[in-house]
């Protein structure tokens, strides 16, 4: 019963995140919502493993966490620099002088 309550709470939180991802207004708000949504999906899948008695779901939760991070970084880098190929600067302006 408590697990079902946890799942319900996560579903509510995910729905609110979808509202923010759709509304924006800026692209960074959307990325933030997508990232947070992904973290909640990880927790939801882990909980579902307990609900349905399938602990192997934890492997998949781990994959979601990983994919979520890489997608967030890709979106962030794209929106900020319009490039997937450039390295990220170490310190502001220092090694970007010739760029």
């Amino acid at each position: 019963m408590l697990i079902v309550a946890g799942v319900a709470g996560l579903i509510v939180a995910m729905s609110l995140m979808i509202v923010r991802a759709v509304l924006g207004p800026s692209h960074y708000d959307r990325i933030l919502a997508a990232n947070s949504f992904g973290t909640k999906t990880v927790l939801l899948i882990a909980l579902m493993g307990y609900l349905f008695g399938r602990p192997a779901f934890l492997d998949i939760a781990l994959v979601y966490a990983l994919i979520n991070f890489v997608t967030t970084i890709a979106l962030m880098k794209f929106f900020r620099y319009r490039s997937l190929a450039r390295p990220l600067a170490v310190a502001g302006g220092e090694d970007g002088a010739d760029g």
Binding site: A5, G6, G9, L16, L32, A33, S36
Partner: peptide, 30 residues
């Protein structure tokens, strides 16, 4: 009961955070 309570507490924290993301005024607070 302790484990279930922690799960519910975590879910409530997630809902609170989602409400914050929805209601706060700018990117940084969100």
């Amino acid at each position: 009961w302790i484990g279930g309570g922690l799960i519910v507490a975590g879910a409530m924290l997630s809902v609170l955070g989602a409400a914050g993301v929805l209601r706060f005024p700018d990117v940084y607070t969100r």
